[in-house]
């Protein structure tokens, strides 16, 4: 097998990698924003509960969680597809990390911003929606891009729960062809090809946050 053939073979798993990443982001972004906002605002027991939830997803091993949700839950009558489990576990793990930067971004805003909004007669939710979140979002973009890249790379783990992603394809090819150097450097190349454009996209987003901010304000 030539190097090109190996790379093409690995890329047959790109759709699964993309699928898990996409659905993972659908878990990660809302969870990050919601958990970050709730942690910022809540006090007492509510804050304790949301912190515990964040820490659960942040401080447990992703591999163990994949096994638990994929192999143990069926014993309790809950059967989830491998893609669903992969997206949820990886997504909530990334989301839990990002929630901390959401909270930090909200906390770092000048108190005068919120006060000016309240003084104008906006309620607390409107201040969050129209004043604090648009500004915090801008600060969060680099972190979100980093988390997205971590998520793509993290999807390599779903090969452990039978998904035919790029890493699984590489292992398959390795079983029929003995050429570990070509196969695994090909795999590296494939992840680089997928991740680097995301990095570039992130840089572009950061530069154009002014425009993005404006668009958010018109929603």
């Amino acid at each position: 097998m030539s190097f090109i053939e190996i790379v093409l073979g690995i890329l047959q798993g790109a759709d699964v990698t993309a699928e898990v990443t996409f659905f993972g982001l659908l878990y990660a972004v809302p969870f990050a924003v919601l958990a970050g906002v709730l942690q910022h605002f809540s006090t007492g027991a509510a804050r304790w509960a949301i912190t515990a939830l964040i820490e659960f997803w942040r401080s447990t091993s992703v591999i163990v969680l994949l096994y638990v949700f994929y192999y143990s839950l069926p014993a309790f009558g809950i059967e989830l597809s491998a893609v669903a489990v992969g997206a949820m576990v990886l997504g909530l793990n990334a989301g839990a990390y990002s929630s901390q930067s959401v909270r930090a971004a909200l906390q770092s805003l000048d108190r005068g911003q919120c006060e000016a909004g309240l003084a104008l007669g906006l309620n607390r939710f409107a201040v969050l929606r129209w004043i604090e979140l648009p500004q915090a979002l801008r600060k969060m973009i680099p972190t979100f891009v980093n988390e997205a890249i971590q998520l793509i790379k993290g999807t390599a783990l779903v090969s452990l729960i039978t998904l035919t992603d790029m890493t699984f394809r590489a292992k398959q090819i390795a079983q029929s062809t003995y050429d570990p150097v070509a196969i695994y450097s090909g795999l590296l190349l494939c992840y680089l090809m997928v991740c680097y454009p995301v990095t570039l996209l992130g840089r572009h987003l950061e530069r154009s946050t002014g425009k993005l901010g404006e668009r958010v304000n018109e929603l």
């Binding site: 000048d110 005068g112 911003q113 007669g121």
Partner: peptide
């Protein structure tokens, strides 16, 4: 509603930068 009838101007302006 009460605050809408009371305008406030701050030392640091507190305009919304975005």
């Amino acid at each position: 509603e009460v605050r809408r009838d009371v305008g406030m101007v701050f030392q640091q302006f507190n305009l919304f930068p975005h």
